[in-house]
Each structure stands twice: as structure tokens, then as C-alpha cells.
């Protein structure tokens, strides 16, 4: 899981990229706390071939990436 809450872009995308490059997970949960990061991480994940499911966790955004 990548917990990028409290970070603004480009950090959440970079953290997601690092996790994908390191472990190439088939499923990955990314937590962010703002819509800008939510969109940017989702776009990035889709460009890496992941399917993205959007969910909320309280006031935060939960992205479930899978492929």
C-alpha cells in the first residue's frame, strides 16, 4: 500500500511509481487526500496498464490499482 496522504503532487505519483517499479504488484492500494492527486495517480496508473477503482475512506481517496 502507498499512503500518500498529506502530500501534494508530484509526490503521490512519484511514490506510486517507485512502488510499481520496485515490486510490480498486480494489485496496489494508494491513499491520497486531495482530488488533484487522485486524478494524477489514476492517470499515471492507467498509463502503466492498471485498472483503477475509486473509493473513499472518510475524507480521503482510496485508489485500488489492479491488472
Amino acid at each position: 500500500m502507498v499512503d500518500a496522504r498529506g502530500f501534494s503532487c508530484p509526490k503521490p505519483v512519484l511514490m506510486t511509481e517507485e512502488e510499481i517499479n520496485k515490486n510490480n504488484p498486480s494489485e496496489l492500494v494508494v491513499l491520497v487526500d486531495n482530488r488533484t492527486a487522485e486524478n494524477n495517480v489514476a492517470n499515471f496508473a492507467m498509463s502503466k496498464g492498471y485498472k483503477v477503482t475509486h473509493d473513499r475512506e472518510g475524507r480521503d481517496f482510496k485508489l485500488i490499482l489492479s491488472k
Binding site: 496522504r5 498529506g6 502530500f7 508530484p10 509526490k11 512519484l14 475524507r59
Partner: peptide, 13 residues
Amino acid sequence: FLKKGFGLKRNYD
């Protein structure tokens, strides 16, 4: 530096 991991700390509610 961002690519090398530069980051200011997390913020909170």
C-alpha cells in the same frame, strides 16, 4: 532532486 526523493514533510488535518 524530486526524482532523487526530495520531499517536504506530510501535512495533516
